[in-house]
Design a protein around this nucleic acid. Sequence first.
DNA 1: GAGTTTGAAACT
DNA 2: CAGTTTCAAACTC
Length: 890
Amino acid sequence: MESPEPSKNNATSSASTISAVAVNDSPQVQESPFFRFVNNLSPIKQPAKTSHVAQGFVGLNSPPLVFTSPRISSHRETHLLERPSCAPSSSQVKSQSDNRGKTIEAPGDSANSTVDLPSAGEFIADTVKDFDVRNNATSQHSSPPPSVDKYLVDPADIDQMYSVNPDEKQPKDTESSLSNLAQSKKSISEVDRKDDPHDKADKPLEELDKAQPGPAYVEGQGQISGEKNDVLMDLQKRMKDHNDCTSQLPPEQTLQDVKDWEDCDEMVSTSHVGAENVSQDASEATLKYHGLRRRCLQFEEAASNALGSGKSCMKSSAPPSKIKMVKLCEPVTSSVFPQKCSGNSTVTCPKPSGIGLHLNSIVNAMPPGCGATTGMRSSNNLQGMKSASISIHKVENMKGCLILSNIDRQSLVDTGNESQANDSSLAVDSFISGSPSLTEPVALCTESLHDKRKLSPTDDGNIEESKQPSPIKKKKRASSNSDDNGCKRCNCKKSKCLKLHEHENKVLETRKQIESRNPLAFLPKIVPQSTDLPSTNMEEANLMTPSSARHKRGCNCKRSMCQKKYCECFQVGVGCSSGCRCEGCKNIYGTKEDYVARDHVSNKERMITRIANEPDGAFLNKLEMVASKSDLYDVPHLSPLTPSLQCSDQGKEAAKFQLHSGQHLPASETDVDMLPSSENYKSLENSHSIITNPEPNETLETASYDWQVDCGDVMDQSSPCDLVANILQVTPLSNPESMSSASLFTSSTKECGNIPQSQPQGRIRLISGSSLRWRGSPNTPRARLGVKHLQSLESESRLFDIMEDETPDVLKESLTPTKSVKANSPNQKRVSPPHGHLRGLGSSSSGGFRTGRKFILKSVPSFPPLTPCVDSKGNSSKGNSSEDLGNNAK
DNA sequence: GAGTTTGAAACT
DNA sequence: CAGTTTCAAACTC
């Protein structure tokens, strides 16, 4: 940070980058005619610092080709680091608008404008090219999976990138968050190369603050050609439809749509990159899209934060952290949520889903890069746009991930920067706790997390006050002697405690060493319970007790009964879990004994309540309507989509499996694989009656029967609303990207590992059925259902295996479909799944689902994987997820 | 503030 | 893996 030396840049920058730096930095270059020319172009004639800005600015107005080449190269180098094409695209659009808005304003404020402009302006031209190239390659894939790959980034690279601009990671405004993020990402590379580290740290923040989408932004939209307007309008329409359906639509679709939009934006931006201006209408539409993107991006951002949090968080200081904190808090309480949402994005605000996005942005998105364990979540964040529950879940996960990532970063970054470690911890703490002070030690961070959950949404910034008013807390803090740096002070004198600030350097070194030996060494002890389903309403928020989080290692109390601070679990305000070896546990936050049962029940209740409170009542209504209209066996108009059919089949299979094996599949698994058809859904609803009067004339019927059987148990516990809710949640699963949503379920189920999953299964199944309706593709003949059913069987069996075993090995060992089918299906009719067909649809869906499942599994782990998570990649994800889980468990 | 209790960590 | 020792924090007075 301090010294923008070539050496630093070398890691990420190419020769071109170096050259650019040299141009800017070297006095010779500055004196060169070219440099003069550049400076003349931009109002800012400051040396190196502004130079890059000027370049960016110049690029916008009159892009000198000379700079472009290095930029392009640099940009492309960082290209890998950047997430999906959409992010850049959005960034481009936004950057343009911002730049223009800034350009208008810029004259007055050169410093700020310069800062913003460079990132946006510089990259625009370059990025346009890149995007064009990308679009050629990737635009064709509207499907999420390909984009997911893009998300994969080398953590180290990401770290470097983000580390450069700590400020950028925490945009104050959600509106600006996207643009800022994109800008930051883009600008980071150049800024690092060109700018003085100080500038990086200080100015970006200012820029971000000013970069907020204001009138200037709208104005900046400028003018757009009629065609573009049409396109934008079209997009807008779609967006509106989306919004209407978004809550209803499965995350998958949402993601796809978002991506589509992004692609569209990209297309627009790229095509018009030159000097195009976007009309206000278009801008509005784009803004909406941006809102969606923002969500996605925010997830990414969150992930990025986790990755790069080290520096970004550190210097961002209170404001950014606050902002994020707010976002985090939002999900907790629905009441708060709307307010905050209203401000920024029109599209997402009204719905909790929007919160989810924000949350997602904050949390789980632990992108591949997030520290050692974060990887999975980020992907989830990206995907889990819709359900508030998902968002909440993500938020929690994000918190954990952020913490972890930050911590990890601490250790990792510390090596390079001593101050960073402290800063990162602070950032983490501040970020999590939302306390502006950034004074709490990392250890407290986890507490703040839990406390937050307890806190009312209104508490926003001051968690500390709201935390545990009990004197104990204060005492603890006092004892901990957390200093301003966020490092926990202690009185360890004989233990060579690394916490002692006196030995900051030693601490850093030691940490580094320790980290090298054990990457997870500095992970937070408290891990947010991934199984906890996100809560959209107050009830759920209330449910978010500290017990929702668990001590990573668990306590070993034998005398204190976990009622005193001797107990680590109690200390951090979390309930004891199965991992605890305490005796006579009486932890007020939750006893070990109650942990399993309570968790299971709570998850179920949360699901129900969330569904009931789902803001998107329309969606539920639709589902109900569809269900009412369609008969179990006659649902021509409802025509379940092919995926749904598969799902239904799968669900049946799952049900069969349960019946025979007696094992309960986690709902998440079934959710992922199964897209319940309307028929199935209805059958589920009528499961009881069906059971009594089964009419399995056809394979489909049989399947429904099985479902019913399985659902029977579920139905007892879950109301139709649950089914609907489950369906809603499940729906997203159809898309691979939607896996994030699915991940919620999976995660919950996973953590609940000990908990009987009978109910979850039923829910899952039900969900799958409902999802079918929702998605209802054009009519699908029953025959299809039969075929798909077979396919679904395979997928289900695999899912079963995966779900049953939380361990990665199990996940890897996808059960052969035949195995599960034979054992499970009471009705031998469907036993043999058509492999070919499955691979076509099912496998694409099932395979994709698998992948998605895998993703889910990964996302579930509270800790980010050390290796960059490959969310999109099923196999890798499986292994990683499992590994992560194992690590987390440990 | 001193002394005791407690659990974690390190060590054997 | 179990037992012991050391240590610092939590707790009590």
